[in-house]
Amino acid sequence: MSIEVRAASVFADVRKVIGPKSPTATVCWCLSHRIPAKLDHELRGPDRGAYVERLCRADPAPGVLAYDGGEPVGWAAVAPRATTSYARSRVIPHLDDLPVWSLWCIRIRPGHRGQGISHALITGAVEFARAHGAPVLEAYPVDNGTARVETTMAYVGMRANFERVGFVHAADTTSVLAGHPRILMRRDLRG
């Protein structure tokens, strides 16, 4: 298996990883932390996909995709924190005034999990953020130790996966997901 990570600029590939089976379904499309809550609630069904399609044409793209032999198998949402709901979060602390970027969602397609794709995505997100001038990349994974995390709740990532690619624990948060505390982890991209 040879995983390649690229900017998520091809909408058809993004749709394969985070889109719904039915085009009329109203699912997250990884928009809940990217856009204001009011707009998130207003966008229904196909309008959500159309919004993501516009994001894929923008620079920077809305994240990165992992490919296995040309097939899209994973997604990571990454963007400047100032453009996300984390900019206004009361549960995820702000540590300083640096224009940090956030990595808040990792999704691996069924049949491809457990193969190290999340590590490739996190590393790809680091390179993507660095290439766009980010001084620091933050993530907000669960601190689950050795406990299993339900697949639907694993989208925020797990502490160990971020530690493996050079992130360090920077702060505790008051956020809890699936019974596990979330922490703020950082990777310095300067130098």
Rank of each mutant, 00 (worst) to 15 (best):
G133E: 03
R159W: 06
Y155P: 00
L65E: 01
G49R: 12
I3T: 15
C30G: 00
D96A: 12
A12E: 10
H180T: 09
A139W: 11
Y155W: 15
G157D: 05
V142R: 05
D172N: 14
S102G: 13
E127R: 15
R113T: 13
L103Q: 07
A171M: 06
A171F: 00
R107H: 07
A82P: 02
M185P: 03
R187G: 00
A7C: 03
R113A: 01
E71M: 06
H94Y: 04
A8V: 05
D188H: 02
A25Y: 05
R48W: 05
N161F: 08
Y67C: 09
V149L: 13
V149I: 14
W104M: 00
D40W: 05
A87P: 01
P36N: 08
T173L: 14
A61K: 01
A8M: 08
A139E: 09
A77R: 00
V64E: 10
G74V: 04
Y86V: 07
K38G: 01
T84F: 07
A66D: 12
G166V: 07
G124E: 00
I122P: 05
A66Q: 11
T84D: 02
A58D: 06
H180F: 15
P141R: 03
E53S: 03
E71N: 10
A160L: 11
P181K: 09
P60L: 13
T152C: 04
E138R: 08
P93D: 09
V149H: 13
E127N: 14
G19T: 00
A37P: 15
R44E: 15
P181L: 11
S118I: 10
P93F: 04
A37L: 12
R148W: 05
P110C: 00
P181Y: 02
L95G: 11
A77Q: 08
W101Y: 07
P141W: 08
G69I: 10
I18Q: 06
F11Q: 10
V136T: 13
A131D: 09
D188F: 05
T26S: 15
V73I: 15
C30N: 11
